[in-house]
Design a protein around this nucleic acid. Sequence first.
DNA 1: CCAAAAGTGTTGCTGTTACACCCATGC
DNA 2: GCATGGGTGTAACAGCAACACTTTTGG
Lengths: 231, 231
Amino acid sequence: MHLNYYQKEDQVLLAVDCIIFGFDKENLKILLIKRNFEPEKGKWSLIGGFLKKNEDLDEAAVRVLETLTGLNDIYLEQLHTYSKIDRDPGQRTISVAYYALIDVDSHRFDGIQIDSAHWFDIKDAPDLIFDHNEMVRKAKARLRRRALTKPIGFELLPEKFTMRQLQNLYESILDKKLDKRNFINKINSLDVLVKLDEKDMSVSRKGAYLYIFDKEKYEKKVEEDGFIFKL
Amino acid sequence: MHLNYYQKEDQVLLAVDCIIFGFDKENLKILLIKRNFEPEKGKWSLIGGFLKKNEDLDEAAVRVLETLTGLNDIYLEQLHTYSKIDRDPGQRTISVAYYALIDVDSHRFDGIQIDSAHWFDIKDAPDLIFDHNEMVRKAKARLRRRALTKPIGFELLPEKFTMRQLQNLYESILDKKLDKRNFINKINSLDVLVKLDEKDMSVSRKGAYLYIFDKEKYEKKVEEDGFIFKL
DNA sequence: CCAAAAGTGTTGCTGTTACACCCATGC
DNA sequence: GCATGGGTGTAACAGCAACACTTTTGG
């Protein structure tokens, strides 16, 4: 039950665009779609949609993601709001960018509009419409900073994973090679992983131990020390 | 010359709210105003205004700041966008929060609506309307993180300042005491300050040397190494 | 001459980096 | 038996934290 106190003010269209990062145990990926409406029809773009009256931005981002890909229960975080007057040649639109993290393999989505969606390796993603390239740049920077201060593997890896996969993930995000021993020592000193009695035999002959995150321990650490680490 | 591709979509009001941090050589402050219109008239709030059709958000933030305080040429950075459906009981409004950094003493503003504005010590700011408390909380966190990774004094200190003042600033932001010698060693090792042949005699009998930032050196360092430090 | 703030270095400790070899297994 | 990736420890070094006394000068 709202009164309209601010009636004479301008109203605008508010969009939500999602930068969806994925990891397939080897490389960092980004999910893009081929736009099937004007303007810029046929070009690659982020997944997006418009905010509706009865939802907040977080809800809109979740809805957009779910409607277009069938993905739900995804880690989403607001990134930045873009408002250049001519950013969308179709019509004045302000866009709030969100970024999402998912494990590619455990989310084999069967969404509807997915014929036009495609995972690109982050290294060779195509040029995007509007200011979407800028959004991706900022999201990458944010992801890098997060990776340096928090173990983000939770969202990007499958439940069980090997040290090699975790290291691959960090190497993709930071875009540099890490020393195997130092990496393992570091991760172990954080004391948030549980080593299982189970091996992944799919890559090497010897097999590599699988690990899972100990979410409880992790949460407790975040509480206690803020849990800032550095790679 | 826009075509209206998205005509059937909902439009919303977009506001800008500014968290204005100041430093008076002693303590970190925040600028608040007593709201002189409904709803919530008479309560303390951040400075804010609505986005207009012919400007982007950065411009709106600058305009709002200048109109309400006379302040211009201020460091402003976008923080986060708030969109809870009932955040403003007056009307559905989405607000983009910006934070600003200024040196209180070199900006003795003579704005118009300033009778209702007041600098509060960050430690004893009053309760604010809507979700403004949350905005301030987030801005403080951001400021703290920035302080730990970049020398932010540029914006918050006068041109010439003493080491003590710089340390006071960092202590206010981080909300903890720092060791004098370690602090000075750290700052000196960054090599971005110039020691002047001039003393500030206003505080101690002995007098304290004044320093200025070497902006060029600073920019060059940012280019070269990203210039991440840690206090 | 005393009060009040300014200025100044060293040491131990902690965490980071650099680095190389053996192990287990499937083929 | 060999090729492939998995697993493991140490030593040098750098950066951080802890720490106390002397200097200056206005009142």
